[in-house]
Nucleic acid binder design. Structure first.
Length: 600
DNA sequence: GCCGTTTTCGGCCCGACTGTTTTCAGTCG
């Protein structure tokens, strides 16, 4: 059984236990264990086979280790199967409806036999919900709104699509008088590959400004519906279905609030624990001396004297920690590293010296080679690899050997013109070295869609899977391993084939693929297109752990798409990568040395 | 169920908002 499957089952077990009214700490323990497995970076099954104890994994104790072992060896989770007989798994879907939590689900199931969103809708129409304990007219309305939102917005929105919405909204709100700070927090700030709700955080210098921004927030033209509004918190749903929350906080607590609302939840929990270890108390209002007094009402500031809170750095510093970049705040060891002053010097967009994956009008790109090169020059790149598709992708106009030869004739001309032989040389693309490459299809049997002769002539050979996604894991792994073992291959592009929100990764043993890449001097790509972002952050961490070189490619099919590089850098940062881990953060000479694999 | 220079029991992050209540439970983040 794969780690992903184990994660899914552990989460399901946690959810069902929660609905069943089980001890909330036990529920959390299973969620923590699921998270631990998800970010493990190695196969649990392999670990079990090797006899390495699972209890070494933080968050996995004796009980869960046993359950994981059973899953790994038998492919089953008997306790979950038993629980599912008492609590139907379809109830989990009900808790995804906003306004419906575990307690209400339990009540719906026990008293009315409701076990699905569809049945809930039916019961509301039939007037059966009124009279249930805790359900009045307003609650009923909230549940109905929740159901509408559920249908409209199942799943999350890709980061690159949220940007288009968020940036203009921010501009509007920043213009409100009295707003001194406005930031996006949440998973958007952590640069997760997809975003659920958008969390905005504002600091104002007067109470009147706080009312003004709340008003401007609700009055934004793209707002379809105001979901809730209070003195410090408001929520709206935009016309495209995305929910946006606004919090207004005092300026001197902005850092603590930004920290808190950026999360992740796991990071916050861990950070608060660090605060407690220092006999301090952390909330979104600041870091306080003296613990909260349980006998007094928990009003802001009642917890003691504030010792930090204006900036995030101030809070971290008071806890003896270096400032943690938002991308790392996932409770994957960043606090330990911050305490040891050992956080990685994360790669930045400015470190990227070239783009190693782009298309032109020679296959399915929309811009010519010259246009792409000029755009790369404008970005200050030292080099760029032209990597059009091969002939197997007929619909993209992929290149066969004859067409590739014609492309090279054009490249000869382009390069001759670009050479600064006189003052009339086109300044635009001067300075960008073109690497002649191709994105060659991996055929079903693992052979490559281009002759060896041409593979040898290319400066850089990317290989990738664009077909036969449904092969078994063993077949897919063997296919890809065979491809990267070809002596002329340099980069395995978008290694899992996923398309966010559209297509799951195909079944493949990445550990085996990484081993083959390492043995053959092949790099794995992080495809920076925000539809793909493949490899994922967790898989990138695993690649780095095995010593595999990573490349970054925009996979641009137009000049505009070259800019998606920033989303790729986001994910590399989330994976703790530094510029030293990334091939195209190195100077051209080093890149060439890597591509030659030590040959001539 | 997990964890441990407060270790094998007794903790486990914290607060806002809403609605249904008459002092609080549920939900959310």
């Amino acid at each position: 059984m794969s780690n992903a499957e184990m994660v899914r089952l552990l989460e399901q077990y946690a959810d069902l236990n929660e609905i069943n009214g089980e001890n909330s700490f036990k529920v959390r323990a299973y969620r923590n264990a699921a998270e631990a497995v998800a970010s493990l970076g190695e196969s649990v099954a392999a670990r079990v086979e090797a006899g390495e104890p699972l209890t070494d994994v933080k968050g996995v104790g004796k009980e869960i280790a046993e359950k994981l072992t059973v899953m790994a060896t038998t492919g089953r989770f008997p306790q979950l199967e038993d629980l599912a007989k008492k609590v139907p798994p379809s109830l989990i879907e009900l808790t995804r409806v906003k306004g419906v939590g575990p307690k209400l689900v339990q009540s719906l199931w026990r008293t009315l036999g409701i076990a699905s969103v569809a049945e809930l809708e039916g019961a509301i129409l039939a007037g059966k919900l009124a009279g249930l304990p805790g359900v009045g007219a307003k609650k009923l309305e909230a549940v109905q709104r929740g159901i509408e939102a559920y249908h409209r917005n199942v799943g999350r929105t890709r980061l690159g699509e949220v940007d288009f919405i968020v940036e203009p909204f921010l501009d509007k709100l920043r213009a409100v008088p009295g707003v001194v700070r406005l930031e996006v927090a949440g998973s958007y700030r952590r640069r997760r590959e997809t975003v659920g709700d958008v969390d905005l955080l504002a600091a104002t210098n007067a109470d009147t400004a706080s009312a003004a921004i709340t008003h401007a927030f609700a009055a934004y033209p793209e707002v379809a519906e105001v979901l809730g509004s209070g003195e410090t918190r408001s929520s709206v749903r935009l016309k495209n279905g995305i929910q946006v929350d606004l919090r207004v906080v005092p300026e001197d607590a902005f850092g603590a609030a930004l920290l808190y609302f950026t999360g992740s939840k796991a990071h916050n929990v861990a950070l608060r624990q660090v605060a407690l270890d220092h006999a301090l108390h952390l909330s979104e209002y600041g870091l306080f001396e003296g613990g909260a007094d349980p006998d007094r009402p928990a009003t802001p500031g009642s917890a003691g004297r504030r010792v930090a809170g204006r900036t995030e750095e101030e809070v971290y510093a008071r806890l003896g920690l270096d400032g943690v970049p938002p991308e790392l705040r996932e409770d994957r060891g960043e606090l330990v590293a911050a305490a040891a002053h050992a956080l990685p010097d994360l790669i930045t967009l400015a470190d990227v010296r070239g783009d190693l994956h782009m298309h032109s009008t020679w296959s399915d790109g929309r811009a010519t080679v010259v246009q792409m090169l000029e755009a790369c020059a404008a970005k200050g790149y030292e080099y760029a690899a032209l990597t059009d598709h091969s002939k197997a992708l007929a619909m993209t106009g992929g290149l066969d050997e004859a067409k590739l030869a014609r492309q090279w004739e054009e490249l000869d001309e382009v390069l001759a013109e670009a050479r600064p032989r006189s003052s009339e040389a086109p300044a635009g693309r001067a300075g960008v070295t073109l690497l002649r490459g191709m994105e060659v299809d991996i055929l079903k049997d693992g052979t490559l869609d281009l002759s060896d002769e041409w593979l040898e002539r290319l400066d850089i050979v990317l290989v990738s899977v664009h077909s036969h996604f449904e092969l078994s894991q063993a077949e897919q792994t063997a296919r890809v391993v065979k491809a990267v073992s070809h002596p002329q291959v340099n980069v395995l592009a978008h290694p899992t084939g996923r398309v966010l929100g559209e297509r799951d990764p195909y079944a493949i043993d990445l550990a085996a693929v990484f081993e083959a890449c390492l043995a053959n001097g092949v790099a794995v790509e992080h495809n920076a297109s925000y539809q793909r972002l493949d490899l994922s952050d967790v898989n990138l961490m695993a690649a780095k752990a095995r010593g595999v070189t990573v490349t970054l490619g925009s996979d641009a099919h137009s000049v505009d798409q070259l800019a998606t590089m920033r989303y790729g850098v986001d994910q590399l940062r989330r994976a703790w990568l530094t510029s030293a881990d990334v091939l195209n953060a190195r100077p051209l000479a080093e890149v060439r040395r890597f591509l030659r694999k030590g040959r001539g």
